[in-house]
Design a protein around this nucleic acid. Structure first.
Lengths: 241, 241
DNA sequence: TCCAATCTGGTATGCCGTTCCAATGTTGGA
DNA sequence: TCCAACATTGGAACGGCATACCAGATTGGA
């Protein structure tokens, strides 16, 4: 091993910020938020902490970079059947983020804290821009665009955040059906006096589909925007799921 | 000191789960998420870690308990001018949560993680129930109640989560005006080619009011529910902010 | 009065992020 | 070709954290 060569080639491969972020994402995906430690990182990269700290200021910056990388990748994906209506594009962007959070559950918490900690960071504008452009294209007047876009972004992050971990945090081997069943049962056993509503929708919770539900929420917000911020209901009708 | 007495009176006051949770909330409020350590807790309660661990299984459970306590208190508050319309009540519940998160910024992250970690915990049903009841009262048919309520709850948590920390995480002494100004300026300096929309709403971001904006989003979702899930637009007209 | 159950708080352990630094590899000028 | 500056590495060490352990204090019941 260590066939040291003369040119710019290193023993394994040059350590770089990129490679570190990549490894960080893998660790986060594999073991959740708690899985990213400098110890694990040094082991996986076969190096020491000092080398990592040379490329990255601290753990917080590393998390930000990992978040940024994943979000950028998610927003860059072009949907297979690219929709031409602005509403369709909004749904596509939202679904992209939804899927990204579903694939990287740690994103949910990370986005929530990062959005509030530094709205000037690169993540917020990226998401905001993607949604906002289409909001403008729908025909929302300028004065309402900030409100409408904010509402959409907040809904997306709130919904995706909750749905994300549902399946994963319990362990990747838990059956989704069983999980929903358990929650539904728990809801049905609540005190009928204190929780009449929650009990009554327990079966709807059991049978709901996350993505479908998520899109239904998007359509709800879009319908609200149409109703409140467009002169009439002229925009393209909300597409059927 | 330590005038040890014979009866059931202790030196300071009996240690109890309640007192521990109370102290935890105070520490969280004072110093944020990082402020809650068992060290600080033992110091404030003038005891040792063992005593605390007798009443509380681990830090995670303590955080859950603190979250639960604050949310329960927030939902229990009756608004001064109790609204009689279901929409008004939804707005009141939402504002209650918004204010609670504003007062206890750590709630944002905590709610996000807790909601996804254990939807059967006591927090989710509590919030869900409060909103859901009013959704039913608005006239949403049963089959759509789960969807409508989910959308509202997701929006509330997403929005409150972001707005919450805006003012606090930067330090309690940062002026809100300056903060928004800084963000707005940062947005205005983005690349015009990549971020036309974000640049165009930079001034709206500068002048927006968090609460007002939050309520506008609620109205948006409510309008969407009215449009999509009520036979006609019969429900009480959305209140003017 | 005694005992078992309950409760307390000090001490000890192992992992964490982070710092420090001696040792390496790399590069450009003489 | 050599060497001095520089960039990069990774090992050892530090303080702080959540948590486990346990010896002793306190208590209510027989």
């Amino acid at each position: 091993m260590a066939t040291r060569t003369r040119r710019s080639q290193r023993r394994t491969e040059a350590l770089s910020r990129e490679r570190i972020v990549e490894a960080a994402v893998e660790l986060l995906d594999a073991a959740g938020e708690g899985g990213l430690t400098f110890r694990a990182l040094t082991e996986r990269l076969a190096t020491g902490p000092g080398a990592i700290y040379w490329h990255v200021a601290n753990k917080s910056e590393l998390l930000d970079a990992a978040t940024d990388a994943v979000v950028a990748a998610a927003l860059a994906i072009e949907p297979a059947e690219s929709p031409d209506s602005p509403r369709g594009k909004i749904r596509a962007v939202a679904l992209g983020l939804f899927d990204a959070i579903d694939e990287h559950p740690w994103l949910a918490t990370q986005l929530a804290t990062q959005l509030s900690r530094s709205p000037w960071g690169s993540v917020t504008p990226r998401i905001f821009e993607s949604i906002g452009r289409q909001v403008g294209a729908v025909g929302v007047p300028e004065g309402s665009q900030f409100t409408a876009t904010s509402a959409l972004v907040h809904y997306i992050l709130g919904a995706a955040g909750q749905n994300a971990a549902n399946g994963r945090v319990l362990g990747p081997d838990v059956d989704r059906g069983e999980f929903l069943d358990a929650v539904s049962k728990a809801w049905e056993e609540l005190d009928p006096d204190d929780y009449p509503f929650t009990r009554s929708v327990a079966d709807q919770m059991r049978e709901h589909d996350d993505r479908e539900q998520f899109l239904a929420g998007i359509d709800l917000v879009l319908a609200g925007i149409t109703a409140l911020h467009l002169p009439n209901g002229q925009a393209s009708a909300p597409p059927a799921t």
